[in-house]
């Protein structure tokens, strides 16, 4: 029975923690944009939380640089498992044009397991909502819940 409750809690109200791993701010403001009246994802129970310890979904934006990598790993370690990790925007997925940068620490999925990829520079709000739906589907399929 507990299993059912856990799954229901995860799929019906996903709490999101947003990790800015050296982005250009654009993905970040578009994430906040989702919470405001035009798109308002809060009506689906999606809430931005201030601490990774409360989070179910980590949205990681930006190319991960050498200084912030350590902190991203720590945030991932602090998040209660099972959690879903989304690589948000082209930078987090592949590094985009920053592959040439001397401060680039490699794409996100090299460092932590990534479940959902949301592409675009920045992704359109519609694409972000689709990404979150995919994340919920992913949670539903998890066996150890």
């Amino acid at each position: 029975m507990l299993k059912g409750i856990k799954k229901g809690a995860l799929t019906r109200s996903l709490w999101v923690y947003h990790v800015a791993a050296s982005p250009c701010n654009n993905c970040d403001i578009e994430i906040l944009d989702l919470l405001t009246p035009r798109f308002d994802v809060e009506r689906f129970g999606i809430l931005l939380t201030g601490s990774p310890r409360h989070a179910d979904l980590l949205l990681v934006t930006g190319m991960v640089n050498k200084k912030v990598l350590d902190r991203v790993l720590r945030v991932y370690a602090e998040t209660p498992k099972p959690c879903v990790v989304a690589a948000f925007g082209s930078c987090a997925i592949s590094g985009d044009l920053f592959v040439d940068s001397y401060n680039f620490a490699g794409p996100l999925d090299k460092h932590i397991p990534v479940d959902v990829y949301i592409g675009g520079c920045p992704p359109k709000p519609e694409a972000m909502i689709l990404g979150v739906v995919r994340a919920i589907e992913k949670v539903k399929k998890l066996k150890d819940l």
């Binding site: 050296s22 982005p23 930006g62 200084k67 912030v68 920053f98 001397y102 401060n103």
Partner: peptide
């Protein structure tokens, strides 16, 4: 934490 080296 955000340095990406644009100039280079």
């Amino acid at each position: 934490y955000m340095h990406r080296g644009h100039g280079k």
